[in-house]
Simulated assay, not measured.
Amino acid sequence: MSDKVVTHWKGALQFESDNPSGKLLSMDASSEAGGYNSGLRPKAMMLSSLAGCSGLDVVAILKKMKVPFSDFRIDTYGELTNEDPKYYHKVSVEYHIYGDQLDEKKIEKAVNLSVEKYCGVMEMFRQFAEVKTSIHYHNS
Rank of each mutant, 00 (worst) to 15 (best):
T133H: 15
T7S: 13
V93G: 01
E83K: 00
I74W: 01
E16A: 04
D100E: 14
R73N: 14
A44C: 02
M1Y: 11
D28Q: 05
K63M: 08
T7V: 15
Y118M: 05
D71H: 04
E32F: 10
Y95P: 10
Y118C: 02
S54A: 14
D103Y: 03
E16I: 10
T81M: 02
L13Q: 06
S30Q: 06
E116V: 06
T81A: 01
K132S: 08
F72M: 08
E32G: 11
V131S: 03
V6K: 00
H8Y: 14
N82M: 05
S92Y: 15
K43C: 07
D103A: 12
A110T: 09
V67T: 10
L25P: 00
S114N: 07
E116S: 08
K86E: 03
R41T: 10
A60E: 06
E94R: 13
D103Q: 07
D57N: 02
D71C: 05
K105R: 10
M65G: 12
Y36G: 14
T81K: 00
N139D: 07
A29K: 05
Y98H: 07
M46F: 15
G34K: 00
S48Q: 10
P42W: 07
K64E: 13
S26F: 15
H89D: 15
G39N: 06
F15V: 01
R126Y: 01
P68L: 09
R41C: 07
L80I: 06
L47W: 14
E32P: 07
M27E: 06
H96V: 14
K23P: 02
S114D: 05
I107W: 00
S49W: 14
V58E: 03
P42H: 02
N82W: 01
E108T: 09
R73G: 08
E116C: 02
C53Q: 00
M65I: 07
K106A: 10
L25A: 09
V131F: 11
I107T: 05
C53M: 10
E104F: 13
L40Q: 05
T81C: 03
L24D: 05
G99Q: 02
S70M: 09
V58S: 01
K86S: 03
V5A: 12
F15L: 10
S49F: 13
A60G: 04
H8S: 13
E130M: 06
P20Q: 06
A33L: 15
I74R: 02
S49P: 00
L56Q: 11
M124D: 04
N37H: 08
V93I: 11
F72K: 04
V67Q: 05
M27F: 15
S21G: 01
I97C: 09
L62R: 03
Y98D: 02
L13W: 07
V91S: 01
A60H: 05
H96L: 14
R41M: 15
D103E: 06
H89W: 04
M124A: 11
E108I: 07
M122E: 02
T76V: 15
Q101R: 11
I135Q: 08
E116N: 13
K64G: 13
E32Y: 04
I107D: 10
S30K: 04
M65S: 07
E123G: 06
L113K: 03
A51K: 00
T133F: 13
Q14M: 13
D103S: 08
V91E: 11
N82K: 07
K43M: 15
V115A: 08
L80Y: 03
K64Q: 09
I107E: 09
I97W: 01
S21F: 15
L62A: 12
L24Y: 11
F125C: 09
T133R: 01
L80G: 01
V111C: 12
